[in-house]
Amino acid sequence: MGKVRSFLILILSLLVVLIAASTVMANERSGQSKVGNYKIPSSVLNVAKENTYPNPSQDLPKLQPSELTKELLETSNVKIENPDLILMLNESSISKPLLAFRHHATIYLGNWPLNYVSKETSANWEYQKINTNFYDNRSGKAPYKIHYVQEMQKIVKGGLTAKVPNASDVKKMMLLKATEKTGLPLSFDTIIGAGTKKDQYYNIPIRKLGYLDAYAPAINEKGTITYGEVYLVLKGGKKQISVKNVTSQGIGAWIPIQDHVSFKFNAVEMPR
């Protein structure tokens, strides 16, 4: 039995290795690589190490509700995911006198964006042009190698596609959801510093002009944001969250992919 078990374990291990290898080969054949949960084209390169401007990390850890906040969120008639509202509840306390048997109070906490539901997440690998490297090899006697060098510092900004109340809260929730879905380093603001370069060369044939265009890629996030008036209700020794006047609206956002550049190379006979 021991030999049979060892043989089966060996076979299973080989199958795992073969499946992993076939996945890698499929990605290579399609010209794509995988970062996090998202496949990106081979023309898009990570320049985090080469970037002369160190972008701050946009990691947004999911805020954990306190025990009191958990109890309150479970009583809400609408799902609440807004990290700023959860933080406010975490920092609140309810003393025992307020929970007296005959005490009754309704406290208005404000009109909040409560949750964001993602419906579509897609990539635009050429969201914004940031640089062009050029060389004229029409009089050259041999092919000329060109590579990417960022000529000027470039600030790439994203944003919401429409004006909405509490825009900063909405952006935070959309950023969290898009990052979770793609696994990519996303930020509404990112910078590519002057002098950033990548040692990937492109050949310009003789009698040709070469253009190497660089683009900042971005994620287009679309979904629905839900708003509501939030009340804390204390009655008969019980506490709960009540949400009134609930409204929903569609919203979209462009969120740049941090420290990534998409390249497009063209060799032409005439200046463009």
Rank of each mutant, 00 (worst) to 15 (best):
T224K: 12
Y227Q: 10
K238V: 04
G193H: 06
K177T: 15
V233Y: 08
E180T: 01
A194N: 09
N203A: 14
L209P: 06
V156E: 06
L176F: 01
A253I: 09
K163Q: 15
A214Y: 03
V156I: 14
S122N: 01
Y227P: 08
A167M: 06
N115F: 03
A253N: 06
R207F: 10
A216S: 13
A218D: 08
G195L: 03
G237A: 05
V170M: 07
V170Q: 07
F134T: 15
L234W: 11
F188E: 04
K172G: 01
N220V: 12
P185I: 04
T132Y: 00
G210D: 09
N133C: 06
Y148L: 13
D169L: 04
I251W: 06
K238Q: 13
L114P: 10
Y201N: 10
K222N: 15
D136R: 07
N133D: 15
W112C: 07
D213W: 02
L212H: 02
Y127V: 08
P165F: 04
Y135T: 15
W112D: 12
T247D: 09
A178M: 03
M173F: 11
L175I: 09
G228Y: 11
L234I: 13
Q249W: 02
Y148V: 12
Y201E: 12
S118N: 09
I241Y: 04
Y215R: 09
G183M: 04
K222P: 00
M152G: 11
L186G: 00
W125P: 01
K244W: 06
W254A: 12
